[in-house]
Design a protein around this nucleic acid. Structure first.
Lengths: 220, 220
DNA sequence: TTCGTATTCAAGCAATTACTTGAATGATCT
DNA sequence: AGATCATTCAAGTAATTGCTTGAATACGAA
């Protein structure tokens, strides 16, 4: 054996990137970005078997992206630190900016309509404090309850159609969801705009909001 | 077929990360970060066969990290943009901060001595303008000639021993090399400090320096 | 201590990935 | 227009990775 330190380092760096190189692990990371989760919960959310999910989690842990602790009977995993979230974001940003295929998929989600630039989190926070804006949290109810932006209204895509007639055409609507890998907000904005409503996406998702130290509420 | 858009996106994101998940490709990226390079040149620098290197380059291009253009007979590859470099940096930062193995290897490079915090590029630039500091570029001569920080002296690790007796014990020495994946500067600093010299590493390498718009010289 | 439960381990299989070799492409240069 | 050269393609093989199944481990509760 006895490989050079340089090769050993490159191997470790490659391992970090490799942890992000499987769609299943990205889905797990998306969940972890929202908060601590048990193995079984993660498996359920991502559609993986428990054993498979556990293996992916160990892969993530070995790469330094996830950390675990015991809580009663179960092991809770979470992102190691903000750097892990930053890495997830950057992967998405590179993909969105440099990979034609991604641009194409995101465009097709907008369904012909040209969605405006997302709202920055700074701008949203200012608008929430002094402007009229309806904030929609497009995630499953359990994720909403575990933490959300104050004043946000939880609504799933399935129930969105029923909400639309009650919305004011003159008030701007902002939608957000899980974060960089989640498309719920994209889809919600497309549906809202199709009905003539003035809707935009928030840049990033709840994890990025929280990571910046902004207020959230919910049972953590 | 007809997979969901969500799954399709995750696959693309995973592809971007996957491009960084092989040591050979990281070595190629390290070279690309220094500037445009032809396939054959990259193959030589990284020790890959030309065909193999070409395949890796296509992988990188498909992930949006590298871009190519023709110049005469050869095809020159380069990093697509600053985001690609930022991604390389962040992978390294996560690995250094969160992977015990990396910390261990970097420590062993320091050879028992405890190296001080690296010098920030801001600080180095200020010191170069008004302070006494010897700046060493620890890279092969051809890479130095292709671009380096003004006033830097090029010296390889092999030739460093001969230089040491001529260095002033009272002047601070700063060393830099290719960037986040390169260990030349680590090794140089360790050698210098072993001889009682006051040496530190510059944070990052030439690519990061250049990316921030700071001056370089050399035949590009 | 014993039971129950959550997680991890281990073995095996299928699919993917990395590398090699040799041939084919395609643009430049004469 | 043809020759040349750098790069890419294609096929084959070895190694790695992802997933499944069933067993083993470790901890908390009774």
């Amino acid at each position: 054996m006895s490989i050079s330190p340089k090769a050993a380092l490159l191997e470790e760096y490659a391992r970090v990137a490799g942890a992000l190189s499987a769609p299943a692990r990205l889905a797990i990371l998306e969940q972890l970005a929202q908060g601590e989760r048990g193995v079984e919960g993660l498996a359920e959310k991502t559609g993986l078997t428990v054993a498979n999910c556990s293996q992916h989690l160990q892969h993530l842990r070995r790469a330094g992206l996830a950390t675990s602790r015991r809580d009663g009977k179960s092991i809770l995993y979470r992102l190691t630190d903000a750097k892990a979230l930053a890495l997830m974001d950057l992967i998405q940003i590179v993909a969105e900016g440099n990979v034609a295929e991604v641009d194409h998929i995101l465009r097709s989600l907008a369904d012909g309509l040209d969605p405006p630039e997302p709202v920055s989190r700074d701008e949203l926070q200012a608008r929430l404090e002094n402007g009229a804006v309806v904030l929609l949290d497009i995630r499953p109810a359990d994720e909403f309850e575990a933490g959300h932006i104050p004043s946000a209204k939880n609504i799933t895509l399935a129930d969105l159609a029923a909400l639309i007639p009650t919305l004011n055409l003159n008030v701007e609507i902002v939608a957000y969801c899980r974060g960089p890998y989640c498309i719920y907000a994209h889809q919600a904005v497309a549906a809202l705009r199709r009905h003539g409503l003035n809707a935009r996406r928030m840049k990033g998702g709840l994890p990025e909001w929280r990571d910046e130290g902004r207020a959230t509420e919910g049972v953590t």
